[in-house]
Design a protein around this nucleic acid. Sequence first.
DNA 1: TCAATATGTGACTAAAAGGTCACCTATGAG
DNA 2: CTCATAGGTGACCTTTTAGTCACATATTGA
Lengths: 123, 123
Amino acid sequence: MSAAHPVPSTASDAVWKALADPTRRQLLDELRRGPRTTGDLCGLFAMTRFGVMKHLRQLEEAGLLLIERRGRERWNHLNPTPIREIYRRWIRPFEEEGADQLLQLKRVAERGVAAKPTRKKTR
Amino acid sequence: MSAAHPVPSTASDAVWKALADPTRRQLLDELRRGPRTTGDLCGLFAMTRFGVMKHLRQLEEAGLLLIERRGRERWNHLNPTPIREIYRRWIRPFEEEGADQLLQLKRVAERGVAAKPTRKKTR
DNA sequence: TCAATATGTGACTAAAAGGTCACCTATGAG
DNA sequence: CTCATAGGTGACCTTTTAGTCACATATTGA
């Protein structure tokens, strides 16, 4: 696909995908409290070890994990940088521009009518 | 599943899922500049009208869209509130606690060794 | 050495998601 | 009314993703 209007597919796509799953968000929440071994993390979920490991791999590929090997153990460390990146480049802009938009929305919700924008070519 | 450790499945799950797709993020980016009709939005992508409409529906179900009907047109308005909610309840905490964690990570990356945490039961 | 522990890989199944198509409804202009 | 236009729905196909299982490797302690 992606002929005339290719989908960007930036490097942060993997981060968004990683954050989309509740299990992975829970993993990040746990790692926010400190580093954990893979085995520790497996004990937190109702799925098998392999399922958790698959999630960990996706987090790692998204750059959200730094991994430290100690003998036969693997300590997983959270890397918050990609999340900050997403915030700076995507979420914060929504915070900034929201003020007057919210007023418009209030009108839409209350009266079913907003400011009337001029129409473009509809194709 | 979800036997011993049920996955939360909060109301914001739909928002995360909605944000996971690059096409939907692009739609939100466009709507951030102002309200658009469904037809307008369809012209921005290389997919058919139906594909775009499916994405719009998912955005709506996640609460990210407010819809205003004007005759036979539908004006889609961005509702930034759910994104702010996600920021406040999930992303901002990562910003706050990150400082010392980042120091630890530097050690991990540079020397391959971090502070040695005490081990728990591995199961 | 030997066995228990901790982790890793590849193939496989089932469900969900992205996308298209055929078809339908409603509105506005003449 | 009539017809072109904007929007909407459901079935359908294809790809991706979540999760499991069988099997394999590496490390530690006795």
